[in-house]
Amino acid sequence: MPQPKHDTEATLAERIALVKAILLPLWPDATPLLSYSDCFGLLCAVMLSAQTTDEQVNGVTPALFVKYPNAQALAGAEMQDVEALIHSVGFFRTKARHLVATAQIIQTQFGGMVPRSIEALTSLPGVGRKTANLVASACFGSPGIIVDTHVMRVVFRLGLYPKKDPAAIENCLRTNLAEEYHTAFSHALNRHGKFVCTARRPACLREDSRCPLDGICPKIDL
């Protein structure tokens, strides 16, 4: 494993490589934590996950997908019926509108199939780059930097980027990390943020748990 250099000596790419070398072996098979059976299901689940936990999303999607198993079915849904199925997630009315509108566009413009490109995905209502990168990587094998709230928090605390700016962090990681590691590193950062470097009481501040990045992390804002 690469040995850490003093912050003044290591380049940003070297620091990212060191974090990667530590985290990837800890989360070697990390994949989306959302429950889904196909690309349309994953797209809907990720759209629902904004400012909502994966557990909450996984609690509503089974019933949603039983009633609306594909874009054609959801495109013809009554808005109040969709709202009733997802009412326990945050911003459920806005998300219901986005789900139905996205299903309609997929049905009419993409032949009922989830589009493959980031450009096409981000043209859909309620779909940003995080969602697009996650869907493109999980469904089509496209390398993707997936910056969610956990990834953003970890990158900021590690001092890899000075602002909590998803687009800038995505660009920073893409520029300083080999493409073959984009998806796996994103998932590893996500798991580290979700289970170790949590928003409240991260592992480094608890006596009973030790963070594997403790020796190289400047603990910014902690």
Rank of each mutant, 00 (worst) to 15 (best):
T94Y: 10
Q3V: 09
P218G: 06
T31Q: 15
D29F: 15
A103P: 08
I216D: 00
P212H: 07
P202D: 01
A17N: 11
T61C: 04
P28Q: 05
P202K: 05
F65E: 00
G41F: 09
P25M: 07
R157N: 01
V135H: 08
H6Q: 14
C172R: 14
V57N: 05
A203Q: 06
I22E: 01
A199S: 15
E119P: 10
R200N: 11
D38C: 11
T102G: 12
T53S: 12
L124S: 03
L177T: 12
K130V: 12
G128S: 14
E55W: 07
E55K: 06
D54G: 02
G126K: 12
N70F: 09
T11A: 03
G90W: 11
V66Q: 14
K194W: 08
L85D: 05
I22D: 00
A73N: 15
L12F: 04
A96I: 10
A96T: 03
P62V: 05
T175K: 12
V82M: 12
T175N: 11
H87D: 06
Y161M: 04
E179L: 15
T102K: 08
V154S: 00
E55A: 15
V147Y: 00
Y161A: 07
E180L: 10
L213S: 02
K163A: 11
T11V: 10
K95F: 13
P125N: 12
S117D: 12
G144P: 00
D54K: 02
K20E: 10
C172N: 15
K20G: 03
K164Y: 05
N133H: 04
R157H: 01
A10V: 02
N133G: 02
K219F: 03
L124G: 05
T131N: 13
A13E: 12
H192E: 08
M1E: 05
I145D: 02
V127H: 14
R116A: 04
V196Y: 00
P69L: 07
G215Q: 09
E78G: 13
A10L: 04
R97W: 12
K130C: 14
A132I: 14
R15L: 00
A77S: 15
